[in-house]
Design a binder for these strands. Structure first.
Lengths: 274, 274
DNA sequence: ATGCCTTTGTGAAAGCGTGCACAAAGATGG
DNA sequence: CCATCTTTGTGCACGCTTTCACAAAGGCAT
């Protein structure tokens, strides 16, 4: 679930629970779709279905924002779009820098819609001198030497880290020192930041592994394959057969097993490094 | 937070809480790093610090797996790596298909390390005939007409959707019909799937919006800027000024505001469409 | 105007997750 | 063999989240 640091009461921020905040973007998306179809009002039931949540939960979520509905009718779509946008801080412009223009960084930069919801790519930054000056998504990549100046000049408070894991903490430190107070981290590392800085993490590796867990569970439920009785205490902790076993993929017998960071695997550091 | 569907008791799967499962990959990563440095054992305190969690939580998490530690010493790194890998189902090979080879799909495919943790890219699939046959990351892109056959031939049970939002549900339906039972969705849509199919969602848009919320809150705490007293009931729901206001960016006055899907914004559908 | 019907907003309760604090377990040194 | 010290495993309490269920509110038809 890509959670950030949680060294705070979880429900800071004037009453609105963290869980609710995390769902507001979901509602906003559903509402925007309705708005584009010129739907004037929507009931909690309908909107909840569109957002994929329980209607009672949705009503309670909205109740934290205020009483924006009309009993017997529902919610005014446009009004709610505005209220949620305002609550999320999307009615203002957020300049964002992306650090690490590898495959992922480039993909992010290429997404033109970045600008369409209050976020604006102020700059792309990469440490590789070969990248400097190269245009990506119409923006010239700038060298990381300029990081501090870029952040300062543009008043950037949100930074996206798409570097290899090894560089992430250092980049993070520099961003924070330069004034960034919110970081979206794609690198597979636990970033340590000072109090007051928010970090959120997106990690495909983790998502896939969670899916694999459930998938295995599903497979094991049907037939007791490989399932090894849970309570079965193996007694003395015996050393495992090897780091990885039971691969049924015959090929790929090259030596590149241990994927150390900055390894040979392209420059897609944010994903699948486990 | 990229949560999947939650129409289940949350703590299904033989006792192991969902929250614990979500942290296992984190522990695994930290342990793998220790293993590479040939560290033989680690205490819950050290490992917790490396994984960025509370040590009590970590111990409780491990207690669901069994008693794999030694009091007074800690945990055997290799043994724990093996146990967690096994629990997550990473000791077997998971063939994965990626559907939608736009910027993001290509970025995912290019990540060589995909294979390094039990996941193997079985095939890349795209609906655009112009893409068919083109090699991406050394794998030929195949046309979506072949989707069913590919899934069937390779015994694929995990699918990654990186298509535009408009195509996601359709792709999802076809994947499920073909036998896929776990889906990682990068498209900004709520997918509806039959019972027994797991969906997890990764959504940069949502993460950024959550950051913006906290950022705004931080800014508002210092000075009462724009903060509008929370309890202030505006009385009758007045229509909002406009969909977006208060942008302080002077430029970008083009007409592309509403980003409908399949819009002009490149092919990075999975991110920032809100 | 009145009554009915729909839908919101919200107490209250149940369910989870987290973190404290400590007893039990095992290693280690004498 | 015993004492001490470290570290695990877990009972317990607390707080956040979710869900239920229903009264209050408002529209609408007659």
């Amino acid at each position: 679930m890509a959670t950030g640091r949680n060294h705070r009461p979880a429900t800071r921020s004037r009453g609105i629970p963290e869980a609710t905040v995390a769902r507001l973007p979901l509602y906003l998306r559903a509402l925007t779709a309705l708005s584009e179809r010129s739907v004037p009002t929507v009931s909690s039931e309908e909107l909840a279905a569109a957002a994929g949540v329980n209607s009672a939960k949705l009503r309670k979520d909205f109740s934290y924002l205020g009483s924006y509905g009309t009993r017997g009718v529902g919610y005014d779509v446009e009004y709610l779009v505005y209220q949620i946008s305002r609550e999320l801080g999307l009615t203002q412009d957020w300049p964002v820098v992306i650090v690490g223009i590898g495959n992922l960084g480039a993909a992010l930069a290429n997404y033109g819609g970045f600008a369409s919801r209050g976020f604006r790519v102020a700059s792309l930054i990469d440490a590789d001198p070969a990248m400097t000056g190269k245009p990506v998504a119409g923006i010239e990549v700038r060298h990381s030497d300029e990081l501090e100046r870029i952040v300062d000049d543009n008043g950037v408070s949100i930074g996206v880290i798409a570097t290899p894991a090894g560089a992430a903490q250092q980049v993070c430190d520099r961003l924070v020192a330069a004034g960034v107070t919110s970081i979206l981290n794609f690198a597979p590392t636990v970033l340590s930041v000072p109090e007051g800085v928010d970090v959120r993490k997106v990690d495909l590796s983790i998502e896939l592994q969670i899916l694999a867990f459930h998938e295995q569970r599903k497979a094991g439920e049907l037939e007791g394959v490989d399932a090894e009785p849970p309570g079965a205490d193996t007694g003395t902790p015996v050393a495992p057969p090897a780091v990885s076993v039971t691969r049924r993929d015959p090929g790929r017998a090259d030596g590149k097993s241990g994927d150390t960071e900055a390894g040979p695997d392209g420059d897609f550091p944010a994903v699948m490094p486990a």
